[in-house]
Amino acid sequence: MPGPDDDRRVDFLDDLEILPDITGDERSEGWGDSDEDSTARLIADRPPHWG
């Protein structure tokens, strides 16, 4: 018969990543954006009345 739960040895794996630090929807790819320069994208998306 095994002993109480307090006597069990638990090994922790410090290098195991259970949850990522940044999720996919926090990255630009999650919003459908590419890795291109955001300044170039903003200039290309400029409205015509801005001249």
Rank of each mutant, 00 (worst) to 15 (best):
P2Q: 05
G3M: 05
P4I: 09
P4N: 12
D5L: 15
D6N: 13
D6Q: 13
D7Q: 13
R8C: 00
R9D: 06
V10P: 00
V10Y: 07
D11W: 06
D11F: 03
F12T: 02
L13W: 01
D14I: 04
D15C: 10
D15A: 12
D15H: 12
L16W: 07
L16M: 14
I18W: 02
L19T: 11
L19A: 09
P20D: 01
P20L: 00
D21F: 08
I22T: 15
I22V: 15
T23A: 10
G24D: 11
G24Y: 09
D25F: 12
E26T: 12
E26A: 11
R27P: 02
R27A: 13
S28V: 14
W31Y: 06
W31Q: 13
W31P: 03
G32H: 01
D33F: 15
D33Y: 14
D33A: 08
D33H: 11
S34R: 10
D35Q: 10
E36D: 14
D37I: 02
D37M: 00
T39C: 03
A40N: 02
A40D: 00
R41Q: 13
L42V: 02
I43W: 13
I43H: 03
A44M: 01
A44D: 04
A44R: 02
D45C: 06
P47W: 03
H49G: 08
H49P: 04
H49K: 10
H49E: 11
G51M: 07
G51T: 08
